[in-house]
């Protein structure tokens, strides 16, 4: 609201609007990342280390535990993202046939979006644990006689419980963003194609899928990035002996032995860099797609 002011004054007002947030982000977030970076380079004046070295990274990249955690995390995120996207697309395609009377369905779909992940994780624990509700149901169905006969689905070595929680939580998220495309501006194209004699498969291949791909992709990248860096869910549902990368960083950081500190910081930086790549992908796909739509 400064249409008549001179240029320097305008600049001053503008910077006044931006500086508080920039200062805050720089003073907390970027400073924190910077400290992680410095300490990961083995710089600890407290215990007399004042030289920078890549020792920690070299050790990290030769450690089997690190690679196991890294690939475990990536695998969990990949599986969770893929399964969520698949279910979400099917659900969205199904749901859009009932757009008219969809208010209750809309509520159902959105219901678990803002539920904290911790609650979801505990719910999965009580549902799929060896003495959980599903296990009890299989007992009454006569499939098992003891809780120990139920397959280990939570705090397991394969991260099944973690994937289950992510899928439960992220399916609505992807479905909502795909559905918003499907509901709005795909319909006329599809009708046109139908009029021209295309069958259902051709309509899907030529219009529906290509049109929803950008939003599917951008929401999937968000899901992948989130699940990769999430701490609470593997903390509740993961096995202690097979940590994901964030848990590994946490364990190393809380180790009373200070020499593990720099290792924690190095893992931190690795997580940050991987996330940065995902952000770049997102900017390329997600933002580009938003601009094209406008």
């Amino acid at each position: 609201m400064f249409y008549s002011k001179s240029k320097p004054i305008r600049l001053m007002i503008l910077s006044g609007m931006l500086v508080p947030s920039l200062l805050f982000v720089a003073g907390t977030f970027f400073a924190g990342i910077f400290i992680s970076g410095v300490q990961s380079l083995d710089y600890f004046p407290l215990i007399g280390k004042t030289t920078l070295s890549f020792r920690v990274y070299i050790e990290l990249f030769h450690s089997a535990i690190f690679y196991r955690s890294l690939f475990f995390s990536l695998g969990i995120s990949l599986a969770a993202t893929f399964i969520s996207a698949l279910i979400a697309v099917i659900l969205a395609l199904w749901l859009r046939r009932y757009v008219r009377h969809g208010r209750w369905l809309h509520f159902l779909l959105q219901f678990n979006l803002p539920v904290p992940h911790v609650v979801g994780a505990i719910a999965i624990l009580l549902l799929f644990g060896q003495s959980g509700l599903i296990s009890r149901l299989t007992y009454w169905a006569g499939m098992i006689q003891q809780p120990s006969q139920f397959p280990v689905l939570v705090t397991d070595q394969n991260g099944i419980g973690i994937v289950l929680e992510y899928v439960w939580k992220e399916v609505p998220f992807i479905a909502v963003s795909v559905l918003s495309i499907l509901k709005s501006w795909v319909v006329p194209y599809e009708k046109q194609l139908q009029l021209l004699g295309a069958n259902a498969w051709q309509r899907w291949k030529l219009v529906t899928f290509p049109f929803m791909l950008p939003s599917l992709l951008s929401s999937s990248i968000i899901v992948f990035a989130y699940t990769f860096g999430s701490f609470e869910v593997p903390y509740v549902l993961g096995s202690i002996s097979k940590p994901t990368l964030p848990i590994l960083a946490y364990q190393a950081y809380l180790n009373p032995n200070l020499t593990y500190r720099s290792e924690a910081m190095a893992i931190n930086i690795v997580i940050t860099i991987i996330s940065m790549f995902l952000v770049i992908f997102y900017m390329k796909w997600g933002e580009g797609y938003a601009e094209k739509r406008r």
Partner: peptide, 9 residues
């Protein structure tokens, strides 16, 4: 950026 990386730093 994941919370754990920020929180530790």
């Amino acid at each position: 950026i994941p919370g754990i990386s920020i929180a530790i730093g």
